[in-house]
Simulated scan of single mutants.
Amino acid sequence: MSDTTFLLIPSAGSTAEGCQQVQQGLALPHLDRLLARLSPHAAQSDSAEETSFSPPHERALARALGLPAHDGHIPWAAWHRHQQGLGADDQAWAFVTPCQWQVSTDHVTLRDPEQLGLDEAASRALLAIVSPWFAEDGITLHYDQPTRWLASGPLFANLATASLERVLLRDVRAWMPDAKQARTLHRLHSEMQMLLYTHAFNDERAARGLPVVNSFWVHGAGALPQPVPTPSVAPAMPTPLRDAALREDWRAWAQAWTALDAGPVADLLRRAEAGAPVALTLCGDRNALAFHSAPRSLAQRFQSFFKPLRAADLLHKL
């Protein structure tokens, strides 16, 4: 499969009412033609609930990379370190994203960390403030990006954590790690909120009209399998659909699908028509549906002659 061109599309569909509405007028001619040439790939498809910690495209990407794809246990932080040439040890790592929790009477909403306006200097200053508190619980923090740090510690070895995408702009309480297993994290959340509530770091931000940082989110926890897997094929994963879906901007989502159909999907179709092996995985809130250029059975060809598989029917199943 090493010569296969693999396209993995997150947020290709959604159960959200706004998405269902714009799908009704969505025309994706290249995707229709591509699906007519491909066969379902059951081994690479899966289904779960919308409440799963790992969204379908993360599970699909993990399978493609040879990583464990168990819900909430995909070791993205450890894989990131490996990809950055920082080592492939058997330590447990996690991502820690500084963020703002907006508390109301019946919701605790995680606002988009990208809207915090954190630059490297501010992120490193915040890291220096909170690191000692984490260290007391055996967690070592390392700077990675302004809105994402790396953390190492035994706590992350078997901890199921929800993807940041699952909880973004939603009530965090539905996505918190297991209270018994993550008692330390739950206490740290409380401590960080008390520490940062009156800290000069946030006072200075507020004076400049910037959002305060009052919490963090842990995700991508786990250790890499040993030996570290070598992917046979790395999928291309365009993110415009996902970005629009996270904002629930369904008009932008439909526009992104039109552009995607005319770009990467059309390119994949041309490769398939030229006889090259291709793979396509469409992901939504619940399901990942995979297709590849394998010989189709007589029954499949007979069925497609009368009722070809169409994108409009498929997106509603995601």
Results as ranks from 00 to 15, higher is better:
A157C: 03
A223N: 13
P55S: 11
L164H: 03
L28Q: 14
K180T: 09
L224F: 02
A223H: 11
G85P: 07
W133A: 08
G85V: 02
P227S: 07
R59T: 09
P264M: 05
F201Q: 01
I129N: 05
D178T: 01
D203A: 13
A259N: 15
F6G: 01
G117V: 06
R301Y: 04
G85C: 02
A151P: 07
M192E: 05
D203I: 10
L38N: 02
R208D: 15
A311R: 00
T147R: 09
A62P: 01
H70I: 08
T230Q: 15
Q115T: 12
A274L: 14
T109C: 03
F201T: 02
M176R: 13
A157V: 01
Q91C: 13
A274I: 10
A182E: 04
D243Y: 01
Q255H: 11
M237L: 11
T184E: 01
T4A: 09
H80E: 07
L269H: 05
P132G: 05
P295T: 08
H57P: 05
Q181I: 10
I129G: 07
H30R: 04
S215F: 02
Q226P: 08
R270N: 15
S123M: 09
D137P: 01
R242A: 13
R37G: 09
E58W: 08
R59M: 03
A157Q: 11
P98S: 07
A259Y: 13
D249C: 01
Q100Y: 15
L159Q: 06
S39P: 04
Q300S: 12
V265T: 07
D90Q: 13
T161D: 03
L7Q: 10
F305P: 07
F305Y: 14
Q21V: 15
G275K: 10
S232M: 13
I129R: 11
V265Y: 05
D90A: 13
L126C: 10
W149A: 00
L110H: 06
G117C: 10
